[in-house]
C-alpha cells in the first residue's frame, strides 16, 4: 500500500525530476566558477580570509546537513569530528612527519569509525535526548584531549614554521590555495549530497518523513543507511577540521573542539534551509561574512555590540524563515513542479 502510493506519483514526475536535477548541476557549476573567480577580484587579505571561512563552513554545514537535515538526527556534537580531523592531522605531521594530505584521510576515517560506534548507540534516542547526548559526548572528548599530555593537552600543537609548500599545505600569506581547497571540499560535500538525494537513501529518508507506515517497513534499511550517513558526515567534517589545522597552523582543544563549532556547523543549514541541497551554502554565505565583519568592526568596542547583532540575526532569521532562506526560491517554483 504505502510503497504503491509513493511510487505512482514518482514515476509521473520522473521527467520533471530529471530536468530539475540537471538545472541544479548547472547552477552548481556556475556557483563554483563564481567562487573560483571571486578571490581574483577581491584581493584584500581580510576579505579572502572571510571567503575561506565561508567556504569551509559551507562544506561543514553541508556535511552536517546529511545527518542532521536529511536523516533528521540533530547532532550538536560535530565538533568532536572536527577536532578529530584537526588533531589526527596535526599529530601525524608534527610527531611523525606525515604530510597533512595523508593525515586528513586518516582523521576522516577515524572520525567515521567513531560516528559508527556512536550512531549504533545513539540512534535509538529520541529527538532532544539525541541532541543532548551528542553535546555531552563532544564535551567529554574535549575534556579528554584537554588532559592528554602527549597531544599537547591545553598547550595545543604548534605547527613548525616552514616555507610555503603544497606538500605540507602551508602558505604564509597566500590565501588562494586555502580558498581552492575549501571550495573543493565544499564541492565534494555538495556532490555527495546531490548523489544521496537521487539515491535510494534519499528516497527512503523522504518516505520516512512523509509517511509513518513507510518508517515501519523500512526500519532496518533506514537504520543502516543512517549509520552510513553518519560516517560520511563525520568523514567530511574531519577533513574540514584537518583543513582548519593546516590553515591556522596552531590548534588547541578549545579552538577546534568547543561547543560553538558544533553550533556553527548546524547554523548555516538551519538558516539556509535544513535538509535542502542549497540551504547550507546559502546560509553560510549570509551568516559567516556577517559574523566575521560584526565581530571585527564592532567587537573592538568591547561592549558586546557584536553579540547583540549576532544574537538578533540568528533569532530573527530562525523566526522569520523557519523553512530557511532557500524556501524563498522554491516557493516561486512550487506551482511549476
Amino acid at each position: 500500500m504505502a510503497s504503491q502510493a509513493l511510487s505512482a506519483p514518482l514515476a509521473a514526475t520522473t521527467a520533471a525530476h530529471d530536468g530539475r536535477r540537471r538545472r541544479e548541476l548547472i547552477a552548481f557549476a556556475i556557483l563554483l566558477a563564481a567562487f573560483a573567480v571571486l578571490p581574483h577580484l577581491v584581493k584584500d587579505v581580510y576579505a579572502q580570509n572571510v571567503i575561506v571561512l565561508t567556504l569551509m563552513y559551507a562544506a561543514l554545514s553541508q556535511s552536517w546537513n546529511i545527518l542532521g537535515g536529511y536523516c533528521g538526527q540533530i547532532s550538536l556534537g560535530h565538533a568532536l569530528y572536527f577536532g578529530t580531523g584537526a588533531y589526527a592531522t596535526s599529530l601525524l605531521y608534527t610527531k611523525f612527519g606525515v604530510i597533512p594530505w595523508f593525515g586528513m584521510i586518516v582523521g576522516g576515517v577515524i572520525a567515521a569509525a567513531i560516528a559508527l560506534v556512536l550512531g549504533y548507540q545513539l540512534f535509538r534516542l529520541a529527538g532532544h535526548y539525541f541532541a543532548i547526548a551528542t553535546i555531552v559526548i563532544a564535551e567529554a572528548g574535549l575534556l579528554l584531549v584537554h588532559n592528554w599530555d602527549w597531544a599537547g593537552a591545553a598547550t595545543g600543537i604548534q605547527w613548525p614554521f616552514v616555507p610555503d609548500s603544497w606538500l605540507t599545505f602551508q602558505f604564509g600569506r597566500d590565501k588562494l590555495p586555502y580558498i581552492y581547497f575549501a571550495l573543493g571540499l565544499f564541492a565534494a560535500t555538495w556532490l555527495v549530497t546531490f548523489a544521496i538525494e537521487g539515491s535510494r537513501w534519499g528516497y527512503w529518508w523522504r518516505a520516512v518523513k512523509d509517511n509513518a507506515d513507510a518508517a515501519e517497513s523500512l526500519g532496518v534499511k533506514i537504520f543502516k543507511s543512517k549509520m552510513a550517513a553518519a560516517a560520511v558526515s563525520a568523514f567530511f567534517t574531519a577533513v574540514g577540521g584537518a583543513f582548519y589545522a593546516c590553515f591556522v597552523q596552531y590548534i588547541d582543544p578549545d579552538s577546534v573542539m568547543a561547543f560553538k563549532f558544533s553550533l556553527l556547523m548546524a547554523l548555516p543549514a538551519v538558516l539556509g534551509g535544513i535538509g535542502t541541497l542549497w540551504g547550507p551554502v546559502v546560509g553560510a554565505v549570509i551568516l559567516i561574512p556577517l559574523m566575521e565583519t560584526t565581530s571585527s568592526y564592532l567587537g573592538g568596542t568591547g561592549r558586546g555590540i557584536d553579540l547583540i547583532v549576532y544574537g538578533l540575526l540568528v533569532m530573527v532569521v530562525a523566526l522569520a524563515r523557519p523553512e530557511g532562506i532557500v524556501s524563498l526560491f522554491s516557493r516561486r517554483k512550487a506551482p511549476k513542479a
Partner: peptide, 27 residues
C-alpha cells in the same frame, strides 16, 4: 508557529536569544 523544522527553529530562536541577552548584559 513555524510550520517547518519546528525543533530547529526553537533551538536557534532561543540560542539567538541567549547570545542577545549576553550581549545586552555586557553592554
Amino acid at each position: 508557529r513555524a510550520k517547518a523544522n519546528i525543533g530547529m527553529v526553537q533551538i536557534f530562536a532561543t540560542f539567538g536569544l541567549a547570545v542577545l541577552i549576553r550581549g545586552v548584559s555586557q553592554f
